[in-house]
Design a protein around this nucleic acid. Structure first.
Lengths: 305, 305
DNA sequence: TTACAATTTTGTCTATGACAAATAAGATTT
DNA sequence: AAATCTTATTTGTCATAGACAAAATTGTAA
């Protein structure tokens, strides 16, 4: 008895994969993919294969590859390409822990997930925890999602639990850093929704003794400026993910630079900034989490001089 | 020198107000509102007036009023109608505190906002804090948003800070409730994104001595069931906001009832359930936050017998 | 190499109509 | 009077096909 295949309308795909209806239709016309079936009303119906392929395509495009290079490609070629990129990002073989945690997530054992994370945090210490566990885990979860191995809500839940753990840790840390260290304001720019990165960074900063003020995601520049002023901020830290349009990064940073007094430093991080060439003056770029500690030490020296 | 008026494209309105392009165009054709200007390319451009009127309309529709009753209405009539409903929800005159906190939010004094909330929590105690401060404040923020007095991101930030405060409180509470009290699983059903309500409820439950597991928003029913089983849950609590389609509430609850063993109770709350008539068997409806304490006491008695 | 111009790619928007799901209104029965 | 069934209206989503500017790439000159 063939199970009735789960199909998706164009609207569902739009909200689940994050590609707008118009774009889905255009791709179909331009690249012959996706080529959904039709129901009796003539409406597009996408099957699971197409949806997961679209997810993969979305991820590849988010890393900077142009649609024309991936949308018409065969499923096999896509996977090959993904592997190639994956290797670049992957590197380590720390994946055992990630696998265990991922299984927790798949089994919906949230309490277990939370406990294990907390346990790892205690065992590894915050620094190692973030770099060796949280960062790869985040990557794996994204990967699993694009392969249809996780549902949207499962990704949400993961982010939820992780945020909880990280914020708790930061609260504890920040309360001890009332005086002495630099005051850092952290957020993401408008239209940048990914906040796990900057949250991880917050923790690393707090670990180094900074007083961190975390503004959540998507703070308009004006408000960053006013907050920096009223909170006597020393450093404003922004995070750009890979999916953030590259050409918008430099202008945003320049604009922010103009809004802030020059004694306030601007630090930009995240996978999105690793490829930018033009660096506006008065700006520190920290493409990887590992670079945070170093940048921090350097800042301390500058200040003492 | 007349300042250049800020205008919005149909896409911007879609994402800022939460009404899809198609619907915006249909309303324009059917009700002559909105009637945006056009740029030289012939694209719709919405001014601030139209956007805020659309926000108000969205809110009114979310409370259950039909589009045909509000979309064609004049701005004046809309405001009158809004006032009418406002009165119904408002009631108290506790608004002074809310006003102060709202000002903090408008001034982007996040640290101040957080501190004030924490201060109020300490002063009033969790119960009073939630009922007299958080609940009305949430309402006011929604109200201010629809009047264009707050921006989207400001609403996000508010929700952010509030979640932080409430979760912290709950963590502290729940850790003390390891044994003895009932085990409650809290979440919202699929497509119900509003989670402040259930978060408030979580705190009130924890206050009464329950062990609360908060799953975040939009948990599929199957996963609620499996989580309930693995966590040996006594009560599953769901929250439905006003904007949740009424006709979907009863079926969802029945379906969940079928998935859960009968010794697991189902409690439904939120503004969305206050008007439902059909109550599926084996179900407790708690339309207001005040009802939680009562329901809890009743549950305790039943159990002892 | 860098800077500018030409070209291609890409996403957003327009217009109008079809249609089913959701809701209300009316009729009928318990 | 309340509950149930029918019919009518309202409402949102999807379809088609083409226009066009912003973004990215390529080619060319300094």
């Amino acid at each position: 008895m063939p199970r009735k295949e789960i199909v998706h309308s164009i609207g569902t795909v739009e909200s689940e994969v994050g590609i707008s209806r118009d774009v889905l239709r255009k791709w179909e016309a331009r690249y012959d993919f996706p080529s959904p079936g039709r129901n009796k009303r003539g409406e597009r119906i996408y099957n699971l294969d197409q949806v997961s392929r679209l997810r993969l395509i979305k991820r590849l495009i988010d890393t900077g590859i142009r649609p024309s290079m991936v949308v018409p490609e065969s499923a096999g070629d896509l996977i090959a390409l993904a592997k190639q990129i994956q290797v670049r990002i992957d590197g380590g073989e720390e994946s055992k822990v990630a696998t265990v945690l991922l299984r927790c997530l798949r089994d919906h054992d949230l309490v277990g997930l939370r406990r294990q994370l907390q346990h790892l945090l205690l065992k590894q210490g915050l620094y190692k925890f973030i770099l060796d566990t949280v960062a790869p885990l985040t990557y794996f979860v994204g990967e699993a999602w694009s392969q249809n191995e996780l549902e949207v809500y499962e990704e949400h839940i993961f982010s939820e639990v992780l945020q909880d753990v990280l914020r708790n840790a930061m609260d504890t840390l920040t309360n001890g850093n009332k005086e002495g260290g630099p005051r850092i304001l952290l957020t993401t720019p408008p239209d940048e929704a990914h906040m796990l990165g900057i949250l991880m960074a917050s923790n690393l900063f707090a670990l180094e003794g900074a007083y961190c003020i975390f503004l959540g995601a998507q703070t308009p520049l004006k408000n960053i400026a006013s907050a920096a002023l009223s909170q006597r901020i020393d450093i404003v830290a922004l995070s750009f993910s890979l999916s953030y349009p590259q050409h918008r990064i430099a202008p945003i940073l320049s604009k922010l630079r103009a809004l802030l007094p020059e004694e306030v430093a601007i630090w930009a991080g995240g996978d999105g900034v690793s490829h930018i060439s033009k660096k506006p003056a008065g700006l520190t770029v920290i493409p990887t989490l590992e670079g945070i500690r170093e940048a921090f030490l350097k800042w301390g020296k500058t200040r003492t001089v």
